[in-house]
């Protein structure tokens, strides 16, 4: 129990402080509207009534946390999941291309890393571009890919998955090249004394020792791929998906809708990263590498 509080205590304290600050900020930001309405209605509210009003507006500048929770409850639990107003439905629309793109991107990334490690020419020609591309804001081209593919008649899941793939591809390449290269001279020489061929060296030495790098880069990749999908839903006036909820909310000033979509996206990101973390723990255990 003491150990639990040692690690959880500080986190909970800070979360509580953030929530408190949030409520205070909501009062400050929403107060002008309350005062304005009070003046127009010609009524005078006491201080506590004013504060209560700032936490219960329809389109507040900053919704209070409990308003977001109520909206989340309404749109997640109260609506049928097939309904267009259900956040579960929108999350699903975003989740599918994210996961599909992530799987494809990781696979491609691993394949490219294998090529880079084994072929000197490929290493020298491609690797500098992979590293340089890390500094380029690739998300910026998401809208273009959507529009172009739409022009050829491809729409729906595929364009979003392509963007997600593109974004999850680079962290995996960089991580895996590093991972495949962790075996040192001594270990490689050992493989040679056993007269192992390239293929055997790869499967019994390089691949197992790269696993420690695979999962951390996949965690980065999956959150990047979620961001890619959400951004991809912005520019085309998409009708479904968390990105579309964000855009719709910003068109109509529905701040509570924006925040609930944002919380949902965060939950999704956390779940995805946790899923990768779980896969990591299971794999590590199976390989006898768990700490």
């Amino acid at each position: 129990m003491r150990r639990f509080w040692h690690s959880a205590g500080p986190v909970l304290t800070i979360v509580a402080a953030i929530l408190l600050g949030w409520y205070v900020l909501a009062v400050i930001l929403n107060m002008p509207w309350t005062l304005d309405r009070m003046e127009r209605a010609g009524e005078s509210l006491s201080f506590t009534e004013r504060v209560a009003d700032t936490w219960a507006q329809d389109k507040p500048r900053l919704p209070a946390p409990h308003q977001i929770l109520v909206e989340l409850y309404d749109t997640v639990i109260d609506k049928k999941i097939t309904s267009k107003r259900s956040l579960v439905y929108h999350s699903w629309v975003t989740l599918v291309p994210t996961v599909a793109g992530f799987a494809l991107g990781s696979l491609l990334g691993i394949l490219l890393a294998v090529g880079i490690v084994h072929d000197r020419t490929m290493d020298m020609s491609v690797m500098p571009w992979v590293i340089a591309s890390q500094a380029v804001p690739i998300v910026a081209i998401a809208p273009m890919i959507i529009v172009v593919l739409n022009a050829v008649g491809i729409s729906g899941l595929l364009p979003k998955a392509i963007i997600a793939m593109y974004l999850s591809f680079f962290p995996v390449v960089v991580g895996m090249v590093k991972g495949f290269r962790t075996p040192d001279r001594m270990e490689l020489d050992q493989m040679r004394t056993w007269s192992a061929n390239k293929w055997q060296t790869f499967w019994s030495l390089r691949w197992p020792s790269s696993v420690r790098f695979l999962f951390p880069s996949m965690k980065i990749a999956i959150s990047a791929s979620l961001v890619g999908t959400i951004v991809a839903e912005l520019p085309t006036g998409a009708v479904a998906g968390l990105g579309a909820r964000l855009l719709g909310g910003s068109y109509y000033g529905q701040t509570i809708q924006i925040w609930s979509a944002l919380v949902m996206a965060s939950l999704l990101a956390a779940l995805l990263v946790m899923a990768v973390g779980m896969a990591e723990r299971i794999t590590m255990k199976a390989m006898g590498m768990a700490r």
Partner: peptide, 27 residues
């Protein structure tokens, strides 16, 4: 104390799709 509290939260937030905050900031 603050470090033990902020580090996990910071790590968590760094993985979130924070770009989504954009419409709120524009408002």
């Amino acid at each position: 104390f603050l470090q033990r509290g902020l580090l996990p939260i910071g790590n968590f937030v760094a993985a979130l799709p924070i770009v989504g905050i954009a419409p709120i900031m524009v408002m």
